[in-house]
Every structure is written in C-alpha cells, then in structure tokens.
Nucleic acid binder design. Structure first.
Lengths: 200, 200
DNA sequence: CAAGATACCAAACAATTGTTCGGTAGTCAA
DNA sequence: TTGACTACCGAACAATTGTTTGGTATCTTG
C-alpha cells in the first residue's frame, strides 16, 4: 500500500470519520464542501488517487473503504513497542485485536458478566466478561455457561460421569455441583470461547 | 422503541448487514431489488416506518441507523440467556462488548501477547492479549508493560521504593526484578487496562 | 527543461437518488 | 363496518450523484 500525500490523508480521514458518525460514504460534493473545493472534479481526482493507492475500493460507481482501513477495527496488536514513540508510528503491527474478529463466526456469540470467583484458578475473575458461543450441547471437560433450575447463569467446567453431570469450579474453596439428569434439568447456554477484562 | 413487523425487521437487518459489509446505506432501489419490490415507494414506506419506530434516523434526506442499532461489530452483552433460543431473538441485551468501546479513548492503545505465566495469579495467562494504554510514566502499584535493557516486553506490577523500582510478578515462584534507576533504564511502554483471552 | 505528479477550477452530462401522488388489497380491533 | 395499519404497485419529479472534458498552476525529479 503506497503512501498518501497530506491532502489525500486529510480526505481519507474525513471519509473515515464521516462513516463512523453517519454510516455513510460522503458524497463528492460533501467532501468538496468540507475542504472548500468548489469543483467535484477535484474530489474525483483525489478519490481516484485513494483508489489507486489501495485505500478505497470501487465496485461499480460505489466507493468503500478497503478492508484494512475499515473503522472500528479494534486495537493494534504489536510485537514490540518502542517506548516513547506514539503507537501510530509503530510499524511492527501484527494485526488488530477485536472481539469480532477473534470470536465472530455467526450471530451466535454473546457475552456475560461473571459473578463471583468460582473460576478464579482458570483466570476468570469477578466482573470479567466471558464470550460464549451459543450451543445446547457440550463435551466433558469444556467450559460452559449453564443454568440449573431457575438460578443465575454459572460458568463452570462440565464433567460427564454416566448419568451424573458435574459442574466443576476452578477454585479449591468451592465444591462441584452434581446434577442428576433425571431430576434436575441442566440447560446449557453455550461454550466459553473467550474472555474480556477491564483492568482496574 | 416500538416493535417491528416481520417485514420491517427483514429490511432493517438487510440495511445493517449492508452497512457492515460495504459501509454504505443501501439506496431505496437496492433494498427494493433485494426484496423484489418493484416500486421504490414501497421501500420509502417501510423506511418511514423504521424512522417512526426509532430504528432509523433521518437528517435532511440522509438516513442512518439510530445509535442503538449501530453496526453490530461486537458481541452482545446479555444478562440472562434463554437456553435454546437463538440469541438474535434475545431482548435483554445490555449493550455490545467491543474492544474499542471498552478501551478506546484515542489512538493510544495497543495489544501485546503475553509470554509466560509470571502474572498468573492476576489472572493473566500465557497467550493472553493484554490491552495497554501507552504512557511513559506510571504510579506505584499499577500494572505496566515495560522493557528492561534490550529485553522483551514484560507485564508486571510496578513498585517504587525510593531510587529502586521493583517489577513485581504475580506468581509465587517468580521473584521481583529490582531496577536501580541510576544504572539500568526502565522504559515503560504503557499501563495495562484490559485483557482479552481466547479460550482453548 | 521536460515529464510526471499534485492540486485545483468551471461546466456540462446521464444516471441515480429520495420523494410524492394516487391506487389496490389484506388484516385486525373498535 | 369503519378506520388504522400493513404491504404492495406504477408513474413522475426535482435534486443530487458520480463522471468527463479541458483547462491553470505548482512542485519535484531525472
């Protein structure tokens, strides 16, 4: 991806912020108005340059941001950070960290806030968000979110022992919950696939 | 926010997915084509309904998604999940979990993959991504990412003890690293503000 | 100094846009 | 049964859209 001139950067930034705030690609004349360009031909020329350099993509006569420049991308993952330099200047990015790109495969994921510290040895603390892939079945040993009776959702490791299902915590001061599949009903909400925590 | 008819939901979903994939609000005739509506007046009528019910917002003659329905680039946070129901049908959403909205305040955040288990008692495991707000200073007791000499980045708790700075792990089998600010230079990359883990 | 890229202009064009009008038809509650 | 809502149609309209043509002017680079 070739580098942009100052003007082209300005215009690209305007387009990105415009999309972020209005979900619309600004029209040529909107862009022109913003930069006091009286001719839409000037804008056209700038946008052509942005397409040529790979920052915009054109399908038919519809312009859109190229995938790498999409807004709401998440946080850049860096291998090594040069202390003192603004991270915008850092080159060794390894991609972007985004809840979506990490966990999304369909509209079948959700997040639940964790209550209590019964999973603290698994590195899941009170207040953490657990990302759950919705599914009704799970295999023994998998970490799931489930309901027992009418109670709150619980995050636990599931163990199948014949007719008995055990929901195993990861905290030595908690005991496993034993469920007799004949009497109580275990309703699995999904499998834990990720964790997001806000520190402090 | 009033509830939508089936048709209106379909159309709203199309608009959302269209924005997600192209960053463009589809034109009336594009929507019409998708649903085999030969008259743009029909589309206009549906969109009017979506505006009336608060799902779309109109400024001038420009339509956009209302804030609550903005691009679902993130995972819905739910309070309680009705097992068995598709989560798209779940009403009790409490918002969306997104790395951006959780941590973003400027272009000053990045993510680093954690190496080793020196912070495992703080619930930070090998392979986790730590979200870091870039800053060069930190207060005693804060969790930071730092470099000592030319070594790899480390995640540690910083403790100031006079001229000595201690980088304290959270794992009883590791020892604190003592840094004499006169000899060695401690380069702080930033403060840890979040954590993202991919389970399994 | 010529060539190429950049940054702008005015004017004009056909196509597409959102909108409006008047109409049909089904459902559902008052 | 009457009104309100929903779901569609075709036709027409003015405004806006992206594009093109033919210009001027500056800067950089071989």
């Amino acid at each position: 991806m070739r580098s942009l001139t100052e003007r082209q950067r300005e215009i690209l930034n305007y387009i990105i912020s415009s999309i972020k705030s209005t979900d619309r690609f600004p029209s040529y004349r909107e862009i022109g108005r913003r930069f006091r360009l009286s001719s839409s031909a000037t804008v056209s020329q700038h946008l052509d340059a942005l397409v040529r350099k790979g920052f915009l993509t054109k399908i038919g006569n519809k312009l859109m941001l190229s995938r790498e420049n999409r807004p709401i991308r998440g946080v850049p993952i860096v291998g090594r950070v040069a202390a003192g330099l603004p991270i915008t200047a850092i080159e060794n990015r390894e991609g972007y960290l985004n809840v979506d790109s990490l966990f999304y495969d369909d509209a079948t994921h959700f997040a639940v806030k964790v209550n209590g510290d019964s999973m603290k040895d698994a590195g899941i603390f009170d207040g953490d968000y657990v990302i759950v892939r919705q599914q009704e079945e799970a295999r023994s040993g998998e970490m799931i979110v489930a309901y027992i009776g009418d109670e709150e959702a619980t995050v636990k490791i599931m163990r199948k022992r014949g007719r008995i299902v055990e929901l195993e915590p990861r905290n030595t001061s908690y005991k496993s919950i034993r469920i007799n599949s004949k009497r109580d009903r275990l309703r699995i909400a999904g499998k834990v696939v990720g964790l997001v925590r806000r520190v402090r």
